[in-house]
């Protein structure tokens, strides 16, 4: 079976972490990754919600910011490799047309460990 594990936290608090606090958390997480070895497939960390753009209403409406509604639930995640935001939005618009009642949030991802690189990302 494939599962996803989604991490939630308060951005105000994580953004206030010092470099040392952040490194301490990442170290502890890496110990868990090591323990589970091959269990972990792509691990991505999302950039802050400020960087998000949302595509709504069957791909016709593009708005700045995250898709922050409470009545919908998270259904799926795509990790896509594209040249820029425009291309990412083109993908999201296509998905929105194919699944017109759904909403899509486009957000850049980074490696969990800064500068460690991310498979597939340049």
């Amino acid at each position: 079976m494939l599962y996803t594990v989604l991490c939630y936290h308060d951005e105000d608090i994580t953004a206030a972490w010092s470099r040392e606090e952040e490194a301490a958390v990442v170290d502890q997480l890496i110990a868990v990754h090591d323990k589970w070895g091959g269990t972990f497939r792509p691990v991505v960390r999302l950039m802050p919600t400020n960087t998000a753009t949302s595509v709504r209403k069957s791909g016709t409406l593009v708005t700045d910011g995250p898709f922050a509604e409470t009545k919908e639930q998270l259904l799926g995640i795509y990790v896509i490799e594209v040249a820029d935001l425009e291309e990412a939005l083109a993908v999201a618009r296509d998905l929105g047309r194919a699944n017109p009642t759904a909403n899509y949030e486009v957000r850049p991802v980074m490696a969990l460990v800064p500068d460690a690189g991310l498979a597939g990302a340049s």
Binding site: T51, T53, D84, L85, E86, P108, P114, D115
Partner: peptide
């Protein structure tokens, strides 16, 4: 690198 990546994403959004 993390701050640079976030900044570049912000600029992409602004340019639109």
């Amino acid at each position: 690198g993390a701050l640079i990546a976030e900044a570049l994403a912000m600029i992409d959004k602004a340019i639109r």
